[in-house]
């Protein structure tokens, strides 16, 4: 069967193979997404902790919380700038 159909180029994939392939791709994509988000969380936490918590006190006070939330937004902004600039530079 495969010998004859191969004469006519690509044969339609049987469903089981296609489904398996898509499941695997989905799974791998999720793994990459999790790795990416945890890398962001780790680096953002460290940098905003250093930026905002200069002298650790008994709890995160309102000032600390405001700073962390603003810092997180700024860090994400910085990430986007680096991403855009890096892609431009990589093209040249």
């Amino acid at each position: 069967m495969s010998a004859i159909s191969s004469l006519f180029g690509k044969q339609p994939k049987d469903d089981e193979q296609t489904v398996l392939k898509q499941q695997l791709q989905e799974k791998i994509k999720q793994e990459f997404a999790v790795a990416n988000i945890s890398e962001l969380v780790n680096r953002l936490t460290e940098n905003c902790f250093n930026n905002c918590i200069t002298t650790p006190t008994g709890s995160l006070d309102t000032n600390d919380q405001n700073c962390i939330s603003q810092c997180a937004t700024k860090y994400t902004q910085a990430w986007n700038i680096i991403s855009k600039t890096y892609i431009q530079l990589a093209r040249h």
Partner: peptide, 24 residues
């Protein structure tokens, strides 16, 4: 992964004051 590394590196060089607003 490189974007994470470079963001980290340049953040440390460029952001010296604690955040007082939600944008750079």
């Amino acid at each position: 992964q490189n974007v994470h590394r470079f963001t980290d590196m340049c953040w440390k060089k460029c952001i010296t004051e604690p955040a007082t607003s939600g944008s750079l």
